[in-house]
Design a protein around this nucleic acid. Structure first.
Length: 422
RNA sequence: GCGGGCGUAGCCAAGUGGUUAAGGCAGUGGAUUGUGGUUCCACCAUUCGUGGGUUCAAGUCCCAUCGUUCGCCCCA
């Protein structure tokens, strides 16, 4: 009947689900705070150029998934498809690295990609991300990976696996790329069509093709790990050693390739078997070239992003959370009584209680039913009689005990009630 | 962008071409006109996502479209 619906790939996150989102945000905030990471909030849209240059013109994200439009001033604008480019732009523009010091930043918010929606994949989706700018040390890589594993572990998620790889520096990758092309070319006609396409454009991505024949062929392909310069190799080895020191389990996956062009050296993904095709909960790595690519000083950096929707799917399987119950449910009937109930509610709130006010004016029986459902341990009742006498009935919903006091008496006992309600 | 499944009330659903579209949860009213969590009764879809078609007859078959879901793709 002409009702307007949410756009495809967007959805309303309703209060029962928001509880999980708040849980994730709270845990993430705590982990970040303890590691001295500070929150940054860059804009949701940026010049298209930022993403084109940062993520890479040849990537699918830039090539066919961005929400790009012209604004009224004829600027080409893009809704951010990921968080790193905006953070790096801010880092450069605001001179956050001016003293050569390390910046530890985190962010959360919506991202936008024009894709076919499926479970764990929306057009508007949300990420929490961490970025450590200004350190090329393998310690930084591991610090950052540990943030992600800490958040996931604190949320109670087990049975996630961490895949680790090194994609080396630019030179390493150029040499490996050539080796891979040399290896694959004789098999060209046997590869799946997508992979044939990539052979010249982006051969590394052929490694994570799901096509069976392509997988068989790549089984015998050279490994990037054999093409790392000694320095890259040493970096990778130190990362592994430190992960082991921290008891963070990982497996090396030389076929792990990230889809965004800016990654160098360490690349990692955290995956779950319970998410179907969209198994990656967290992905990230080192991106030493990006700051310079976007016009800043040469600055090493490493970071990751967690997909909130996917994480919350896992969390909902694991535990049940309900929206919080109020301390008091306020039952009232009649104009004067309702007005007094409102005043009472406010005073209780100022004292720190959570209070839900029944606005229905319905029969007491109905209001009690709702009081019960609200989960409040106690309700306060003001009817015509109480209103006249400035009284209130305090009823404990568990024991059915009820007493009548004056409203002033109630206020004088708030400390005592606080102790009782907790 | 490609391929398959699905779309019945706020939610979960039965219904496989034949007259009045099960049931449950939630909701509303009442038994109980100022006291809940149990119980009982009543009410709650002129209509099956939307539009068209086939048929004497369509929720049921066909086409289109929108949405959703699974896979490809992509990625968090």
């Amino acid at each position: 009947m002409g009702a307007i619906r949410a756009l495809r790939g967007t959805r309303d996150i309703l209060p029962p689900e928001v509880v999980y989102w708040q849980q994730v945000e709270q845990v993430a905030r705590g982990v970040f705070a303890r590691a001295s990471y500070q929150e940054i909030r860059p804009p949701i849209f940026e010049q298209t150029e930022l993403f084109a240059r940062g993520i890479g013109e040849a990537t699918d994200v830039v090539g066919k998934e961005m929400y790009t439009f012209s604004d009224r001033g004829d600027r080409s604008i893009t809704l951010r498809p990921e968080g790193t480019a905006g953070v790096v732009r801010a880092f450069i523009e605001q001179n956050l690295g001016s003293q050569g010091n390390v910046q530890r930043l985190w962010y959360t918010g919506p991202m936008f990609r024009y894709e076919r929606p499926q479970a764990g994949r929306q057009r508007q989706f949300h990420q929490v991300g961490a970025e450590l700018l200004g350190s090329g040390s393998p310690v930084a890589d591991v610090e950052v990976i540990a943030l992600a594993t800490d958040i996931l572990r604190e949320l109670g998620l087990r049975s996630l696996k961490l895949d680790l790889n090194s994609v080396g520096n630019k030179g390493d990758r150029t040499r490996y790329r050539q080796a891979l092309i040399d290896y694959l070319t004789p098999y060209q006609s046997e590869l799946d069509p997508d992979s044939q396409d990539r052979l010249t454009r982006n051969p590394l991505r052929i490694l994570d093709s799901k096509d069976q024949r392509t997988q068989e062929i790549t089984q015998g392909a050279p490994s990037i790990l054999d093409y790392l310069e000694p320095e890259s190799q040493s970096h990778f080895e130190q990362v592994q050693q430190m992960l082991t020191d921290l008891d963070i389990a990982y497996q090396i996956n030389p076929r792990l390739v990230r889809g965004l062009d800016y990654y160098t050296h360490t690349a990692f993904e955290i995956q779950s078997d319970d998410l179907g095709a969209q198994a990656t909960v967290c992905g990230g790595g080192r991106y030493d070239g990006l700051v310079a690519e976007l016009g800043g000083k040469e600055t090493p950096a490493v970071g990751w992003a967690i997909g909130m929707e996917r994480l919350i799917l896992l969390l909902q399987d694991l535990q049940t959370q309900s929206p919080p119950s109020p301390n008091f449910y306020l039952v009232s009937r009649g104009d004067r009584a309702q007005a007094q109930a409102l005043v009472l509610a406010q005073k209780l709130r100022y004292f720190g209680f959570t209070v839900e006010l029944d606005l229905s004016g319905a029969a007491f029986g109905k209001q009690f039913k709702r009081a019960d459902r609200s989960g409040a341990p106690a309700c306060l009742i003001i009817g015509e009689t109480e209103a006249e006498q400035q009284q209130v009935n305090l009823k404990w919903l568990t024991s059915q005990e009820q007493e009548t006091l004056t409203q002033n008496e109630l206020f004088s006992r708030l400390d005592q009630l606080k102790a009782k309600i907790g």
